[in-house]
Design a protein around this nucleic acid. Structure first.
Lengths: 131, 131
DNA sequence: TAATATTACGTATTACGTAAAGATT
DNA sequence: AATCTTTACGTAATACGTAATATTA
């Protein structure tokens, strides 16, 4: 079993319609059908009632759907959490000031910022009254 | 990302040795290496320190390992839970009794069993003292 | 030198798409 | 008849293994 099976299954369970599900997944309908069949075969339980053309979750399908949603949500969160470990792109903070003020007025704030974000660059820029 | 990536990663993290990990996984070492690389590429973060030959988890790797273990555990439980929905194979309970007792003595227990497990078959069998 | 990890490349598995058939409303 | 699902089959993507290279103790 792979996460792909769960993605397909959850989408089909949401739409209760293989065609719309395959459209959402941007793959063909037979591909979804086959992956669903493989999943059911591995689980040893049908997830949908197939007798009627109208798809309907079996009790097993209901139970598995909750787990599948949970697993996909957790996996997405795990991946997203890793972005916090990515070395940040070097960012630039540009601070504009006008003539009558002296840069030293900003020094404490700049020092605090520099300590909390040592990777970032600070640019000071004197600006004309017009902007 | 697929569960396969997590399986490989967890095994390598457990062994801290790609060779032993690949042996446990019953696949070749390069296959593991490549899947790990793909995973790291998707996450945008190295999971192991590669500078030393000795593998060591990065902070990101430590964090991701917990999630990976959790996801694999939950997926296994979800699959296992589905077995409860499988139609049971027909089982047979054979009850042996000896002559001085009458079958009616067992009737309440048999009735209770029959109600809780209607799919199962009960066989009564009078047994000689020897067995 | 020995042990391990990575890269290169050919192969085998398999997921996918298209086309056809089957089933249901 | 129309819509949807499944089956059949060829193709494309990719996971894998073998061999070669690189790196480290």
């Amino acid at each position: 079993m792979e996460l792909r099976h769960l993605r397909y299954f959850v989408t089909v369970a949401k739409e209760l319609n293989g065609s719309r599900a395959s459209a959402r997944l941007r793959i063909s309908q037979p591909a979804v059908s086959r992956q669903l069949r493989d999943l059911e075969e591995e689980l040893g339980v049908p997830l949908f009632h197939r007798g009627n053309s109208r798809l309907k979750l079996t009790p097993a399908g209901e139970a598995f759907l909750a787990h599948a949603r949970d697993l996909l949500r957790r996996s997405n969160e795990a991946v997203k959490e890793m972005t916090a470990f990515r070395p940040q792109a070097r960012r630039t903070l540009t601070v504009g000031y006008r003539a009558p003020w002296r840069v030293t007025t900003l020094t404490p704030a700049l020092r605090a910022f520099g300590q909390s974000s040592p990777e970032d660059e600070v640019v000071l820029r004197e600006m004309a009254p017009g902007g």
